[in-house]
Design a protein around this nucleic acid. Structure first.
Lengths: 348, 348
DNA sequence: TTTTAGCACTCAGCAGGTTAGAGTGCTAAC
DNA sequence: GTTAGCACTCTAACCTGCTGAGTGCTAAAA
């Protein structure tokens, strides 16, 4: 859909001004602020055309124009110029990821805080999960006469644990033995790599502990396929309340009720087949019906080409797309690198 | 401060009606709804007295009266009748805790959800932490040539972990040895029990691994003294938005900004020396200046007399104190029992 | 002395009406 | 194709008066 050059300029002006002011944009404003070299009347004509084509709309008869979802989409796809982060912003992000990683959970949390702080919207970060991570270590720990804890450590630095019931007849030494054998057989394997023959072998060796083995293998299976619920870090929800579109309490309520449902959020983050790079979803392009007048900018972070998790920003459709896209892009890259360093163990 | 019997009845009527309707209560309303056997005029006189003594106040000249913080305090201390939970509520709570505990984190989260669901206010639950828990197991897991993960399991079912740098010279076998020795020497000890002599002994045996030992002992120390940040589970924030006092967006904003600061919340939950049983803090009795017109009802849960953590409800001062107190009380008791069962391993 | 009825007074909130200003669409001239 | 001018529309802000809830005071009743 080719568009007249001047029309593009008008649309761009409307989008920019509306993003900046949250007020419907009039023809006079455009003529004054954006110096297109034509009079308001001409701009009015262009605007009438743009409205007919669905790129902008009018809240009411005597108001200015506001970009439609289609308008934002056109802006993001064709008009938007790359936004360069300020040196301070880049430094802030770099220094954030330049620390020694002690605990992945903490890094994720910090990432979320920083993301919301820089964008002034709500940030969502998914913990490392998807993808085939490798099994590092399993340990059975006796907790009391009838229970033990199974701890599984994965190579991406995540931990999984579960309490299981055990027969009283099992001794601490037995558990040590089980742990040792499981480790010896399975270390370094991904889910796909665990061959049936291998499992049979283990069951054979540990026949008398079948019951425990069942429970341990179950957790292991969950850890490897990452069924275990992934955590989502949410930050800067109250940033959204500073946006004029959320001065209405009803809207705040629906927003909050959505953000409290982790599963729903999880669906939002993983729902779309995420291509490489940054994905922008505008308004109705977000599948969820309850989320209205919002856009999401998401991207995946990865290690050695393996997708680990994703982060994203939720804001009003009137979002500073260019800036947010740059930030999300830069942060995923830095997070990926930091995790890469952590997993490879290359230096600080 | 002894109070006239009829004054008490009037105060009670005002508190009850205001809690129910959120509207200032007038003399006529009291006379009609609460049948004290006297006319509105008499009640007006009593109300004038109550206002003079500071138990109630008037939003503006021609409005009814509203309980003051002092009024709520008097209500909670002297007037409130015990609220019995409905059979359904009790069943709901019991069935919640009657499951087999697989993971403490999950139980905490569910507890928070249920608490907010039953009270319709915001629930806060602190993970098990304070108190001297015992060390169960430590494990060093090699992650890559230069890093290892230290995993510590505590007897209250919590896990702590941290990535540490290691010299390349250390082999996986070395780490296994270190783990084994640490476990043998330290299992079952609390922080106070770890004697200096014992530590020296360990350092002597593992002299050549001093560096790793330092890092491992650091995590251990943190785990035992529970310095590591405790998690707070928050639930039902959006419940608060249904309260008429939060129809003002500004108030919602300050509330949310507070709830996003975990440290602040942590201070709120642990700040007061929590006595046994349920604590009620009304309005200004909450230390935080930013929290206005809110009350908190908190209680600790414990295992075998050892305080483990606490849970609480944050709501407007116009809170259904009697009901909330009963719920918090009942839930802490049930949670304590569930954890007790888990740690003792006595059946499901 | 306590309670009550009656009455004048106060004030928030709402409905209705008016105005100001922003912005449009159309028309006719450039 | 562009622009100035103008009539028109609609919202938001402001004023105004009214209503109703609720009070405090006074004087009479119990």
């Amino acid at each position: 859909m080719k568009m007249d050059d001047r029309k593009q300029k008008v649309l761009l002006a409307i989008v920019h001004d509306y993003i900046a002011t949250a007020e419907p944009v009039g023809s006079r404003t455009i003529a004054k602020k954006f110096r297109l070299g034509v009079s308001p009347a001409t701009i009015r004509n262009e605007m009438a055309d743009l409205e007919e084509q669905g790129y902008i709309e009018q809240p009411h008869t005597s108001a200015g124009r506001v970009p439609s979802e289609q308008g934002y989409r056109y802006y993001v796809d064709y008009l938007m110029k790359k936004h360069d982060l300020s040196a301070e912003e880049e430094d802030l992000i770099r220094s954030e990821f330049d620390i020694k990683v002690k605990d992945i959970g903490q890094v994720i949390q910090k990432t979320g805080q920083l993301l919301s702080q820089l964008t002034h919207y709500t940030a969502m970060v998914l913990t490392p999960s998807i993808g085939s991570s490798r099994f590092k270590h399993i340990q059975l720990v006796s907790m009391n006469p009838t229970q033990a804890m199974v701890v599984v450590v994965m190579d991406n630095g995540t931990l999984h644990h579960r309490l299981i019931d055990i027969p009283e007849s099992i001794s601490a030494d037995d558990m040590e033995t089980i742990s040792r054998i499981l480790n010896a057989k399975l270390r370094g394997l991904t889910n796909e790599n665990i061959k049936l023959t291998l499992v049979k072998e283990i069951y054979f060796e540990l026949a008398r502990h079948k019951h425990i083995l069942d429970l341990a293998m179950e957790l292991l299976e969950d850890s490897l396929t990452m069924k275990s619920e992934d955590k989502i870090y949410l930050g800067g929800v109250f940033n959204m309340l500073n946006q004029p579109e959320f001065h209405n309490v009803e809207k705040v309520k629906t927003l909050l009720s959505i953000l409290e449902q982790e599963k729903l959020l999880y669906g939002l983050m993983t729902g779309e087949e995420q291509e490489v790079g940054v994905t922008v979803r505008i308004g109705g392009e977000i599948k969820n019906k309850e989320i209205k007048e919002c856009s999401m900018v998401t991207a995946a972070y990865s290690v050695a080409g393996r997708k680990m998790g994703s982060m994203g920003v939720l804001g009003p459709t009137r979002m500073e797309y260019a800036k947010v896209i740059s930030i999300v892009d830069f942060m995923t890259k830095n997070l990926s690198q930091a995790l890469e360093r952590m997993m490879k163990g290359t230096g600080k």
